[in-house]
Simulated assay, not measured.
Amino acid sequence: MGWRMPHEGDPHERTWMAFPSAGVTLGEGTAHQESGYRAWADTALAVAEFEPVTMLVDPTETDRARRMLGSAVEIVEAPVDEFWLRDSGPTFVVDDERPGVIGAVDWIFNGWGAPAWAEWQKAAQHARIVAGQVGAELVSSLLVNEGGGIHVDGEGTVLATETVQLDPNRNPLADRSRVEAEFARTIGAQKVVWLPRGLTADYEELGTNGHVDIVATIPSPGRLLLHSQQDAGHPDHAVTRELREHLARQTDAAGRSFEIIDLPAPAALRAGGEFVDYSYVNHLVVNGGVIACGFGEPEADARARGILEDAYPGRRVVTVDARPIFARGGGIHCITQQQPAVPSHSRFLSALRLAPLAQDPLTPAKGGPHV
């Protein structure tokens, strides 16, 4: 099988998300919880202006989800504990030799390294559930990985972080060569560009230990959008400067050096007394648009929209307040997962709207049993 992960800017059939449910990530207190529900709903409704959205919803939250999302978002009832679908859901791939076929990589998800606070046993089944709903071939993997831990150019280049895929709490026996071989098998990577680390706050208790999708992304082959912390009072000032120097020495799968475009952070340095990793890099590219993180700073948010409009010509950039999402450990890209459009795959759209979730979420998808 020649699986390849398409670029995020390629056409989508839909975006997948998961609705918040009670637990550590949602937090305590009515007002705080409501801010989480609202942020996830606002993101889904913004995406739905550009392409279909399907939301996994725990049965305990169905009434709330229907009330907040209305008819704009399709709902699939499924068990949900963690609701960061970029990480718990599948990474979609295509096979250029088999038009109309879509694959779903089922990484092992262990809650970002199995920290004591994480509730991830239900989320670990999301990739299989979504693959079954889509009719995708399941591509099983023994690598502990999350969708937020990689970014691709669609032409064989993947960005990854040493502190994520080589994390001993994720893959204690892995080394670079083994991870690179698995990326080649599952997503068609010919060149892995390794970042040595992620942003400072991402190593705190609710962090991912360095996800790349808050640091850098590839808006088009040969170009990088890189988070830039320009305030020397923030520890990421030194981090992002060092990452820029590192990435300036790297090349992609085609042998090109990267054109690096700085995407400055907003002015806010702290929230609740702790340093924040507010990043405009953590956006989602959709059909005809970009869903960007907003941080309540009109000038900085507008500056980021301008940079994103230049990076993605012809797309309309829409800002959604992402502060409640970042308060829980991530951003807009972290809670969404694009399903690429493939020829002749539209037949699954009507089936998706009608098909109930299988009673047993562990029932193998047609790609075979999980290994």
Rank of each mutant, 00 (worst) to 15 (best):
residue 19 F to D: 03
residue 299 E to H: 02
residue 322 A to P: 14
residue 204 E to P: 01
residue 175 D to M: 00
residue 210 G to E: 11
residue 252 D to R: 07
residue 103 G to F: 00
residue 303 R to E: 15
residue 213 D to I: 01
residue 29 G to R: 03
residue 283 H to P: 12
residue 362 L to V: 01
residue 154 G to A: 08
residue 220 S to K: 15
residue 120 W to I: 04
residue 208 T to C: 13
residue 138 L to A: 05
residue 38 R to M: 10
residue 173 L to S: 11
residue 65 A to F: 13
residue 66 R to P: 10
residue 174 A to H: 08
residue 321 D to S: 09
residue 13 E to P: 01
residue 240 T to G: 09
residue 331 G to V: 09
residue 260 I to Q: 11
residue 82 E to L: 08
residue 90 P to A: 02
residue 295 F to G: 00
residue 18 A to I: 04
residue 5 M to F: 07
residue 48 A to D: 07
residue 41 A to P: 03
residue 351 A to L: 12
residue 119 E to W: 02
residue 100 G to I: 03
residue 32 H to V: 12
residue 247 L to D: 03
residue 125 Q to T: 12
residue 97 E to Q: 08
residue 312 Y to G: 06
residue 88 S to W: 03
residue 247 L to E: 06
residue 31 A to H: 06
residue 173 L to Y: 11
residue 129 I to V: 13
residue 195 L to N: 12
residue 103 G to N: 00
residue 175 D to Q: 02
residue 215 V to E: 04
residue 209 N to G: 08
residue 248 A to V: 06
residue 199 L to K: 05
residue 337 Q to T: 09
residue 258 F to I: 06
residue 272 G to A: 10
residue 302 A to E: 15
residue 33 Q to F: 08
residue 183 F to D: 01
residue 81 D to F: 00
residue 163 T to S: 13
residue 216 A to V: 13
residue 309 E to N: 02
residue 133 Q to F: 13
residue 272 G to E: 11
residue 269 L to Y: 11
residue 310 D to R: 10
residue 265 A to W: 00
residue 116 A to C: 02
residue 278 Y to D: 06
residue 180 E to P: 11
residue 110 N to T: 09
residue 331 G to R: 13
residue 82 E to W: 09
residue 251 T to P: 02
residue 287 N to L: 08
residue 172 P to G: 11
residue 133 Q to K: 04
residue 67 R to I: 05
residue 295 F to R: 03
residue 83 F to Y: 15
residue 19 F to S: 07
residue 164 V to H: 09
residue 150 I to N: 01
residue 3 W to C: 03
residue 93 V to A: 01
residue 197 R to Q: 15
residue 171 N to P: 04
residue 164 V to Y: 06
residue 364 P to T: 10
residue 222 G to N: 07
